[in-house]
Design a protein around this nucleic acid. Structure first.
Length: 893
RNA sequence: AGGCGCGUAGCUCAGUGGGAGAGCGCUACACUGACACUGUAGAGGUCGGCGGUUCGACCCCGCCCGUGCCUACCA
C-alpha cells in the first residue's frame, strides 16, 4: 500500500503487520517439494555433502529430541547447499522390531486374537499393513519441521534393497567366522519373548532383599550360609562358590552341600570371582540363570539346570514349584525355607535390576542358543579410525567414553525371537543336519542335495540393519553412483545415548564392508530434558510436544530455540519462555523487512555498492558488522557450535541492525537528499539480503517468505549463495567511530531517564571532547546524535566552561552536559554523580592495587600492564571530571 | 563401584587466566509512521563451599556439598 503522493516511500509490496507463520510455513514447504529443491544432484566438480538421518522408529511420533536432532541436521544441509555443495540428506525410518511388534500385538489383543493364533505369515502381513496405514507419521512431522531431506530417496530398514544388504552382510560375516551360533547365557525378556543384547537391558536401582540361606553340608553336620537376591534360582544351583583364599572356608572345597528343597548334592568350588566382603562370602551358582554364574560354571565344568520357561514360569526342573511364576515362586521358596528353619536372615538391599528397554519387564538371564557377532576384530578397526582421526567425534570429550566401551566390548547377541524383522538367512537341512547360511535362499542342501530345508525362525536385532544404514541406503551391495558420490557421508548428527547402539556399530560395519569410514565427523548433541533435568518420557508425563510448540510459536521459533540451546557438552533443559522469546525475534525480523520494503521497492538487487570507504559512516559500520557476523556464523557452523551462530545472528539483527542501523537510516530514507536516499536504499537492501541468507539455514520459512517479495526477480533463497567474508568490508575505523557516537547517545538518553525528563522533551546538549579529531567527528554527526537522542541541538567543544546547572555524564573521556538552567533537580543529579563516582572509585582501586604491586609489574605481560595503566589514566580523568561536576553542583545548591 | 557432566542475575542458559553476559521476568517512562510479538533507561550476581597454584582465579588443581547421566559380574 502506498499513497500516491507520498514521495518518501517507494513502491513495493506491503507486508502484514505481524508475521503469520501458520499461513507461510505449509505454503513454502509445499513449494519446495514441488520444485524438487531438496533433491540431490550428482554433478561433477562440486564438493559433496551428505548426511544420513538417524532413522526414527516407524512407530515413533516426533518428540523434542527429534526436533533438536533434525533441526541441527537441516541447518548444516541448508548451509552447505547454499555454499554450493551437492547435498544429499537421506531420510527414512527404522522398522523397530520389538517396538513395532508390540504395537501390532496390542492391536491383535484388542481384537481378541494373537500372533500365535494367526501365524507368522499373516502376522507379518498385518505389520506391513499397519505400516502402510499408520506407520511413519513421523515423516510428515519432519516435513513440518522444514527438513530438506531428499524424500525421493526415503528408505526403510525393511526395504527390499536394505534387506539384501542385511543378508549379504550376515553371510559374509558368517563365512569370515565373525558370526557364530552358540549356547550362551543371554538376557531374556519373558514379556517380549526374545533375547536382548546387553545394551538393551536397563539397569535400575531397585529396593530388594538379600536372603541368607543355609545350605547343609552333605556330611550331615553344620551348614554353609549363602546370600542371594533371587532365592528362586536356587532350584537351578549346581554349586556353591567361595573365594579360594578365604580362610573362613579353607578346607571346604573337598566338601559338598545338599541343596535345600531339592536335595541335590552340589560341590563347593573356589573361584576368585567371589567377593569376600559381600554377603557371607559364599555364592550360590546358577549357571543357567546368571551371567557370572555361567562363567564360573565354565571354569569349573559345572552342569547347568534351566528352571524357567520362556514366560518366566518355573518348568519341570523346578520340581514341586513347576508352573509357578518366578516371583510367586520366590515367595513360596522363602516361606518354605523359613518353615524349615533354613532362612538365616533377610536384609534389605538396594541393587541394580535389569529391565527390558522396550517393555520394562524384569529381564531373566537365561541359557539359550543364539547368534552372535564376534565384535572385537571389528571394534579394533573402529578404535583405530577414531585414534587416527579419520573419524572425529564432537565434542571430543565423548572419545573417552567411546574408547572405554570399545575396549571392553563383548560379543553382540543379534538373534531375536520375534517375527517382525530380517529373518536370519540360515537353514538347517532336515536330512543331513547341515547348517546353510546364504544371501540367496537355497533350494537344496549343498551337502546332501536334500530339499527339506528348515529356515531359522529368529530375526536379527534391529540395530544390525541400522548399522548398515550409511551404505545400505545408498544402494549397497550394488555399486551405485550414489555410493561413489556420497560415501563416506560428511557428518553424522545424533544424540549421545545411541553412541554404542548405533554409531559404534556403523563404524564397525562401514569400515569392514566399505573399507572406509561411514562418516568423517560425528556430532553428538545433548538430550533434551525437562526442567528437573529428567529424561522426558510419556510415563513421567513430562514431555513437551514439538508439534504443539510449532502450532503455538511457529517452526522457525522452535528451530531457532533448538539451535540457541545446542551448546556442546551440556544437557538441554527446554524452556517454553525462550521459545516465545524467539518467536518475538522472528517477528522482529519480519517487521524490519516490512520497514525496509517500504523504501527499497524500486531498488536494483545486486547493484554494486560504492567503494566501502566512500560511504557514510553508518553504512560502513553496518557492512562491517555484517561481515563480522558472517565470519562468526561460518566459524560457528563449521565447528558445530550452533548456539554461537544463533546468538551472533540474534545480536546482529536485533541489537545492531534494528536498534541502530535502521534508526540511523531513517534520516536518509525519509529525508530530502536523493543521493543519500538512493545509497541508503541500496545498502539497506544489501544488508537485508545477506542477513536473510545468513539466517536461512536456521529459520527457513520466514526468510523465504521475505525473500520472495524483495525487489527484482527472485527464485528461492534456498539456492542463493551463502554470504562469504570479505576483508574489504571489515572496517575497524567505522566501528570505533560508531562506538563513540553510540556512547554519546547513550549518555544523553541516560541523563534523560535519570533526570526524569520526558521522552519527547527536546534537549540542548553540550559535548566536551579534548581530542580535536574525535570532536570533529562528533560534530559531523551531530544531526544523527540529535535524531537518536531527541536532542534539539548538540554543541561540541574542545575546551571551555562547563555549562552551569547542567546534568552531566561521561563516556570514556568525553563529557556530556544537558543544561537545565533552573529546571535541574539538584538532588537527583547529585545522587547520580555519587553513584557514578562510587563505580569509578571501586574500579580505580582495583587498578591501583594491581599497578602498585611490584610482582604484577614484574610478571604480567607488558601489554596487560600497559592496558592497566591506560585504565588508570582514563578512570582518574573520569573521576576528576565527576568530582568537578559535584563541586559545581554544590555551588549551585 | 567406576566414568562423565553440571552448580554463573528471580527463571532458562552462554562465557573467559587479566575490568561478570544474553533471553525471559522485574522497575520507571513512552502508543514519533517497521514492530506493544515495541522502544528507552534501570535494578539485580561474595560466578555452590573450603583450600591450593598464580603477580592475578568465575576460569587451572584438590577436597567437600548438591544435582544429573552413563558404564559395571559384589550375588
Amino acid at each position: 500500500m502506498t499513497t500516491p503522493n507520498d514521495s518518501t516511500s517507494a513502491t513495493g509490496p506491503e507486508l502484514a503487520k505481524a508475521y503469520d507463520f501458520k499461513a507461510v510455513e505449509p505454503k513454502w514447504y509445499r513449494r519446495w517439494l514441488e520444485e524438487k529443491k531438496f533433491s540431490a544432484t550428482m554433478e561433477q566438480g562440486r564438493p559433496n555433502f551428505s548426511i544420513v538421518i538417524p532413522p526414527p522408529n516407524v512407530t515413533g511420533v516426533l518428540h523434542v529430541g527429534h526436533a533438536l536432532n533434525n533441526t541441527l541436521q537441516d541447518i548444516l544441509v541448508r548451509y552447505r547447499r547454499m555454499q554450493g555443495a551437492n547435498t544429499l540428506w537421506v531420510p527414512g525410518t527404522d522398522h523397530a522390531g520389538i517396538a513395532t511388534q508390540n504395537v501390532v500385538e496390542r492391536q491383535l489383543a484388542q481384537e481378541g486374537t494373537s500372533r500365535h493364533d494367526i501365524g507368522r505369515r499373516k502376522f507379518v502381513e498385518r505389520v506391513w499393513q499397519w505400516r502402510e496405514e499408520s506407520g511413519g507419521q513421523i515423516i510428515n512431522q519432519l516435513k513440518r519441521l522444514g527438513c530438506s531431506c531428499d524424500w525421493d530417496r526415503e528408505r526403510f530398514t525393511m526395504d527390499e534393497g536394505l534387506s539384501r544388504a542385511v543378508k549379504t552382510v550376515f553371510t559374509r560375516l558368517y563365512r569370515e567366522g565373525l558370526i557364530y551360533q552358540g549356547d550362551y547365557i543371554i538376557n531374556w525378556c519373558p514379556r517380549c519373548h526374545t533375547a536382548l543384547a546387553d545394551l538393551e537391558v536397563e539397569h535400575e536401582p531397585t529396593d530388594g532383599k538379600l536372603y541368607h540361606i543355609r545350605y547343609p553340608f552333605a556330611s550331615g553336620e553344620g551348614y554353609l550360609v549363602v546370600a542371594t537376591t533371587r532365592p528362586e534360582t536356587m532350584l537351578g544351583d549346581t554349586a556353591v562358590a567361595v573365594h579360594p583364599a578365604d580362610e573362613r572356608f579353607s578346607g571346604l572345597s573337598e566338601k559338598a552341600v545338599i541343596l535345600p528343597l531339592v536335595g541335590r548334592k552340589i560341590p563347593i568350588v573356589g573361584d576368585t570371582h567371589v567377593e569376600r566382603e559381600f554377603g557371607t562370602g559364599a555364592l550360590k551358582v546358577t549357571p543357567a540363570h546368571d551371567l557370572n554364574d555361567f562363567e564360573i560354571a565354565r571354569r569349573h565344568d559345572l552342569p547347568a539346570v534351566k528352571i524357567m520357561d520362556d514366560n518366566g514360569v518355573m518348568n519341570q526342573s523346578a520340581g514341586d514349584y513347576a508352573g509357578l511364576d518366578r516371583f510367586a515362586c520366590r515367595k513360596k521358596i522363602v516361606a518354605d525355607l523359613e518353615a524349615l528353619g533354613l532362612m538365616d536372615k533377610i536384609e534389605p538391599l538396594q541393587h541394580g535390576v535389569g529391565h527390558c528397554y522396550r517393555c520394562h519387564t524384569v529381564v531373566e538371564p537365561t541359557l539359550s542358543k543364539q547368534w552372535f557377532v564376534s565384535v572385537k576384530p571389528l571394534a579394533d578397526k573402529a578404535i583405530a579410525a577414531v585414534k587416527e582421526e579419520r573419524i572425529r567425534i564432537h565434542p571430543k570429550s565423548w572419545e573417552n567414553t567411546f574408547f572405554d566401551w570399545m575396549y571392553n566390548i563383548r560379543d553382540w547377541c543379534i538373534s531375536r525371537q520375534i517375527w517382525w524383522g530380517h529373518q536370519i538367512p540360515a537353514w538347517t537341512c532336515v536330512t543331513c543336519g547341515e547348517l546353510v547360511v546364504a544371501d540367496i535362499d537355497p533350494d537344496v542342501c549343498p551337502k546332501c542335495r536334500g530339499a527339506n530345508l528348515h529356515r531359522e525362525t529368529d530375526v536379527l536385532d534391529t540395530w544390525f540393519s541400522s548399522a548398515l544404514w550409511p551404505f545400505s541406503t545408498l544402494g549397497w551391495p550394488d555399486q551405485t553412483p550414489e555410493l561413489g558420490h556420497f560415501y563416506p557421508t560428511s557428518v553424522l548428527i545424533t544424540s549421545f545415548d545411541i553412541l554404542f547402539f548405533w554409531v559404534a556399530r556403523m563404524m564397525m560395519m562401514g569400515i569392514h564392508f566399505m573399507g572406509e569410514v561411514p562418516f568423517r565427523d560425528v556430532y553428538l548433541h545433548a538430550l533434551v530434558r525437562d526442567a528437573q533435568g529428567q529424561k522426558m518420557s510419556k510415563s513421567k508425563g513430562n514431555v513437551m510436544d514439538p508439534l504443539e510448540l510449532m502450532d503455538q510459536y511457529g517452526t522457525d521459533a522452535l528451530r531457532f530455540t533448538m539451535a540457541a540451546f545446542a551448546a556442546q557438552g551440556r544437557d538441554i533443559k527446554l524452556s517454553e519462555e525462550r521459545i516465545e522469546g524467539y518467536r518475538h525475534f522472528i517477528n522482529k525480523i519480519w517487521n524490519a523487512a516490512r520497514f525496509a520494503l517500504m523504501h527499497i521497492g524500486d531498488c536494483t538487487p545486486g547493484a554494486a555498492l560504492p567503494a566501502p570507504r566512500s560511504l557514510p559512516l553508518h553504512h560502513r559500520w553496518i557492512l562491517s558488522r555484517l561481515n563480522r557476523t558472517t565470519a562468526e556464523v561460518h566459524a560457528a557452523l563449521g565447528g558445530f557450535n550452533f548456539n554461537e551462530a544463533a546468538n551472533a545472528l540474534y545480536q546482529f539483527v536485533w541489537r545492531e541492525f534494528c536498534d541502530w542501523y535502521l534508526e540511523w537510516s531513517k534520516a536518509d530514507l525519509y529525508g530530502d537528499d536523493p543521493a543519500a536516499k538512493a545509497t541508503g536504499r541500496q545498502v539497506l537492501l544489501t544488508v537485508l539480503e545477506n542477513t536473510l541468507k545468513l539466517l536461512h539455514p536456521l529459520i527457513p520459512f520466514v526468510t523465504e517468505e521475505i525473500w520472495e517479495v524483495l525487489p527484482g526477480a527472485r527464485t528461492s533463497i534456498m539456492t542463493e549463495p551463502f554470504p562469504e567474508v570479505e576483508d574489504a568490508r571489515q572496517d575497524d575505523e567505522a566501528e570505533t567511530a560508531v562506538t563513540l557516537l553510540m556512547g554519546i547517545i547513550g549518555g544523553i538518553r541516560n541523563i534523560r531517564s535519570e533526570m526524569g525528563l520526558h521522552p519527547s522533551a527536546e534537549l540542548e546538549v553540550v559535548v566536551i571532547c579534548h581530542d580535536p579529531q574525535r570532536a570533529e567527528r562528533i560534530a559531523a554527526y551531530a544531526s544523527a546524535i540529535c535524531a537518536m537522542s531527541r536532542a534539539r541541538r548538540v554543541t561540541v567543544r574542545e575546551t571551555g566552561e562547563r555549562p552551569k546547572g547542567a546534568a552531566s555524564n561521561i563516556f570514556t573521556d568525553i563529557e556530556i552536559f544537558v543544561p537545565l538552567e533552573g529546571l535541574i533537580d539538584i538532588d537527583k543529579e547529585m545522587a547520580k554523580l555519587d553513584k557514578d563516582k562510587e563505580k569509578v572509585v571501586a574500579q580505580l582501586d582495583k587498578v591501583r592495587g594491581k599497578l602498585g604491586n611490584e610482582k604484577f609489574l614484574a610478571n604480567a605481560p607488558a601489554d596487560i600492564v600497559a592496558k592497566e595503566q591506560e585504565k588508570l589514566d582514563a578512570m582518574s580523568a573520569q573521576l576528576a571530571k565527576i568530582e568537578e561536576n559535584i563541586k559545581r553542583l554544590r555551588e549551585l545548591a
